[in-house]
Design a binder for these strands. Structure first.
Length: 263
DNA sequence: CGATTATGATTAA
DNA sequence: TAATCCTAATCGC
């Protein structure tokens, strides 16, 4: 379930569990044989997230670039390495962890220059150190596109996905179809603050919760979508009870409350 | 057991 | 805008 929080958490956990020991790398599925061979026996030097993009440095001339896309997963199956289940593009085995990558939209080795090209196109990442808020603010102020679409644009803010954009706008009381340029400075500040706050919570908890993070203490099975979220895939407004509506922005649906988010 | 769906992004048209 | 890619879980029959 990959928005930016997932990728940053992944980078953190890869670094923590793979340490500096040599890693056994292979492609159970066979679709990344040559790439895996280039990493086999190398230690993970550093994993790093840029928005939804993950880069892993193994101390070789090329960097592993992974993008999970909509359905990709990168999970630790524990050690010792259990039998392979399903379509695993890449498996990384360390002394204390076994990472299985499935369904990525990108899994490739790239030159550092290509990595630079990718990251240069990305906007401010709220989860990175000292994100360039000014550039995001300037981009918001410059366009007439709907704010709901701009929030999903990775070249403006890197890491927000379809769930967070809906939840952020609800919490800010902003109608998703409003032109980005119509936001006041205060409104932009509020959007940015909520973005940082929510993504941090998501990274900490390992899942998207925009209501009350304390809720996570409850068993997962007893937490419904409606407990975690205000508008994404919801029918009624948690605040005012009105029927929520859906709009298509940026090619994807976004739910909102017509009362709490007036046009 | 087939159809549907999913927190994404690129390419082609 | 639509088609396409990638996989697994869930849903309906």
């Amino acid at each position: 379930m990959p928005e930016g929080h997932t990728i940053h958490r992944l980078a953190r956990d890869l670094n923590a569990t793979l340490g500096d020991a040599p890693v056994v790398a292979w492609s159970p599925q066979g679709r990344f044989d040559s790439g895996a061979a280039a990493l086999d026996g190398r230690p993970l030097v550093k994993a790093e997230a840029w928005g939804k993009y993950l880069f892993c440095d193994f101390g070789t001339d090329q960097v592993l670039h992974v993008h999970l896309g909509l359905i990709g997963k990168f999970r630790d199956r524990g050690a010792p390495a259990p039998p392979v289940v399903g379509e695993i593009r890449l498996r990384l085995e360390g002394p204390g962890a076994t990472w299985d990558l499935s369904g990525p939209t990108r899994c490739e080795l790239v030159d550092p220059s290509e990595q630079d090209l990718i990251t240069a196109k990305l906007g401010a990442d709220p989860l990175r150190h000292r994100p360039d808020v000014g550039s995001a603010r300037a981009k918001f102020a410059r366009t007439d596109r709907a704010v709901g679409a701009v929030l999903l644009d990775q070249s403006v803010v890197a890491g927000i996905g379809n769930v967070y954009r809906a939840e952020i706008l609800f919490l800010c009381g902003i109608h998703p179809a409003r032109p980005s340029r119509s936001l006041t400075d205060d409104e932009f500040d509020q959007v940015w603050a909520e973005t940082v706050r929510l993504l941090r919570i998501g990274m900490r908890l390992g899942r998207i919760i925009t209501t009350d993070p304390a809720e996570v203490g409850r068993p997962r099975s007893r937490m419904t979508n409606a407990d975690r979220l205000y508008v994404y895939h919801q029918e009624f407004c948690r605040r005012c009870g009105d029927q929520l509506r859906t709009l298509d922005l940026g090619g994807r649906p976004i739910g909102f409350c017509p009362t709490c988010q007036p046009a």
